[in-house]
Amino acid sequence: MALPFLIGLHQRSMVEDRNLQNWVAAKDIYLLSIKDVGQDMGLEIEVELQNKILALYQRLAAENNGFFMDAMDVYVLEVQGADYPLNGLLADGCSTHITVSPNYFRFNPIVTSEGVPVEQELIYADNVLNLLVPESWSSIHDALDERFLDYFMFYRFEIYNRIYSAAPNDPWNPSRQEELEINMIPVRTGQSYFTFSPDIRRDAGNRIPDPVVVVDTGNLHPTSTFTRASRCLYFQYSDGQDMDITDYLAEIVGMDGFVFASSVWEGVAARVLRLKRDYIASVSLTMSIVLGYLASSFSLFANYFARNQYLITVKTLWGFRGFRRYRSASVMLFMPTLLALPLFGLIMATRLSRLFPPLSIQTLLLAGAILAGIDILYFVFMEKLLRKKSMHSILKGESS
C-alpha cells in the first residue's frame, strides 16, 4: 500500500511544483478571509456585516484592484467526479459557470470574438447582467438567456423578498418595474481563466478553458458579495505600504479581528514545500517497509531451506482441513503481491480513500508490476544464495 501511495504523492508533488510557475505573477496578490461568526446571529447583524463587507469590497476594488474569481461550482463538480461541460446550464442541480468581477481582466485579459477587450463591452447598469459566452456555445444562446434571467431575478429580487425584506436596516430594495436584460458577449474560443486557487483544476495548471462567465458589476444583492468575499476576494497589497495589511482591512471595516488576508503566493509555495517534505517522509517509510519485507522474506526462505519443505494448511468453508507439502519455495513468490493489491483496492473503494492521493489504474498496475519484480528478483537471489550455502555446508561436512 505504501508504494502506490508514494507514487501518487510523487505525481501530485510534480503537478504542484509545475503549477508553481503560474503563480509568480501573483506575488503581491492576497486572499481575503472572514472570521466565522456562526449561524445564530440575528438578521439585523447579518445585514450589518454584509454592508461592511460590501463597503470593503468597493474600497479594495477602487484602490487595490480587488476582484472576485469564483469557481467554486467547478470545484464541487471536480470533487464529485462529474465531468460536465461548463456551458452555464445546470447539471444535476449544480451550476456550470464561473463568476468574476471587472478588475479580474487586469490580471487575466479576455477578448471578444472580434478581438476587443471584454472590459469595453461590459454594460454597467442595474438591470443588466453581463455574460461571457465562448463562440463554441453559440447554439445554446436562447437556453442561456432563459437560465440567467432566472439567475438574475433570484439574486436581484427574490433573495431580498424571501429573506432580507424583514430586516429594517437592509437598504437594498430595487424597483421591480425595471426589465432585466442579459448582455451576452461572445468571446473567442480557446481562452482560459486562472483560478487563483491551487485546489481547482490542478492537472490543468489551475486554469479553466472556455467556461461561461458571469461578470458581477455590483447589481446583485449584497449577500452575494458577502458570500464571495468569504472565499474568493483577491486584491493587491504591497509590503512597502505604510500599514500592516490586517490593520488596513480592520480600518476599512471598522472592526478588529473580523477580516484577515493571506498571500496566495506564500500559501502555494508552502503547499509545495509541504508536499516535498511529505514525499521525503513517504520515501523513508516505504524504504523501512521494503527492508522489513525483505527481512521477513529472508526468514521464510531460510526456514524453507532448513526444513526442505513448506507446509501450508487450507481450511475450507465447511471446517475440513487440507494439508499440502510444496517441494519448491516458489509458492511464496507472489503471496505479498496478491495480498497487497486487493487490500489496497478495497481501501481505495471505501471512505479510507481520502487518506490517499488520487491514483489511476495505470498507477496501481505499475505498483503491482514493481512489487512482482521485487518478489521475483529477491526470490531468485535468495534461492541461489541459500542453495550455495547449503552445498557449501554439505561439502564441508563430507570433507570433515
Results as ranks from 00 to 15, higher is better:
residue 72 M to P: 00
residue 72 M to G: 00
residue 74 V to D: 01
residue 74 V to K: 00
residue 75 Y to A: 02
residue 77 L to Y: 00
residue 77 L to D: 00
residue 78 E to H: 01
residue 78 E to G: 01
residue 78 E to M: 02
residue 85 P to S: 05
residue 85 P to F: 07
residue 85 P to A: 10
residue 86 L to K: 03
residue 87 N to V: 00
residue 88 G to E: 02
residue 89 L to V: 11
residue 89 L to N: 09
residue 90 L to S: 07
residue 90 L to A: 11
residue 93 G to M: 06
residue 94 C to D: 07
residue 94 C to P: 10
residue 94 C to V: 09
residue 95 S to N: 13
residue 95 S to A: 15
residue 96 T to K: 08
residue 96 T to G: 10
residue 97 H to F: 13
residue 97 H to A: 11
residue 99 T to D: 12
residue 100 V to M: 13
residue 102 P to A: 12
residue 102 P to W: 13
residue 103 N to W: 12
residue 103 N to E: 12
residue 104 Y to N: 10
residue 104 Y to R: 03
residue 104 Y to P: 03
residue 105 F to Q: 06
residue 105 F to T: 06
residue 105 F to E: 05
residue 106 R to C: 11
residue 107 F to V: 04
residue 107 F to D: 04
residue 108 N to F: 08
residue 108 N to E: 10
residue 109 P to N: 08
residue 109 P to R: 07
residue 110 I to W: 03
residue 110 I to A: 03
residue 110 I to M: 04
residue 111 V to R: 05
residue 111 V to M: 09
residue 111 V to N: 06
residue 114 E to F: 05
residue 114 E to Q: 12
residue 117 P to K: 02
residue 117 P to F: 03
residue 119 E to L: 10
residue 119 E to R: 01
residue 121 E to H: 07
residue 121 E to S: 05
residue 124 Y to C: 01
residue 125 A to P: 00
residue 127 N to I: 01
residue 128 V to G: 01
residue 129 L to G: 02
residue 129 L to D: 00
residue 130 N to T: 03
residue 131 L to A: 06
residue 133 V to E: 04
residue 134 P to R: 03
residue 134 P to T: 01
residue 135 E to R: 05
residue 136 S to C: 04
residue 137 W to Q: 10
residue 137 W to N: 04
residue 137 W to S: 05
residue 138 S to D: 11
residue 139 S to K: 00
residue 140 I to V: 13
residue 140 I to W: 14
residue 140 I to G: 06
residue 142 D to F: 11
residue 142 D to L: 02
residue 142 D to T: 02
residue 143 A to R: 13
residue 144 L to H: 04
residue 144 L to V: 06
residue 145 D to K: 11
residue 146 E to G: 09
residue 146 E to I: 05
residue 147 R to A: 15
residue 147 R to E: 15
residue 148 F to P: 05
residue 148 F to T: 03
residue 150 D to E: 14
residue 151 Y to D: 08
residue 153 M to S: 14
residue 153 M to C: 12
residue 154 F to S: 06
residue 155 Y to M: 11
residue 157 F to N: 07
residue 158 E to P: 11
residue 160 Y to P: 03
residue 161 N to K: 07
residue 161 N to G: 10
residue 163 I to C: 10
residue 163 I to Y: 13
residue 165 S to I: 10
residue 167 A to C: 14
residue 167 A to P: 13
residue 169 N to I: 09
residue 169 N to A: 06
residue 170 D to G: 10
residue 172 W to K: 04
residue 174 P to A: 13
residue 174 P to M: 13
residue 174 P to N: 14
residue 176 R to F: 15
residue 176 R to Y: 15
residue 177 Q to C: 12
residue 178 E to P: 15
residue 180 L to V: 12
residue 181 E to H: 14
residue 184 M to Y: 14
residue 185 I to L: 13
residue 186 P to F: 15
residue 187 V to D: 09
residue 187 V to K: 05
residue 188 R to S: 12
residue 189 T to Y: 15
residue 190 G to W: 08
residue 190 G to E: 04
residue 192 S to I: 01
residue 192 S to Y: 07
residue 192 S to N: 10
residue 193 Y to C: 02
residue 194 F to Y: 10
residue 194 F to V: 00
residue 194 F to N: 05
residue 195 T to L: 07
residue 196 F to I: 04
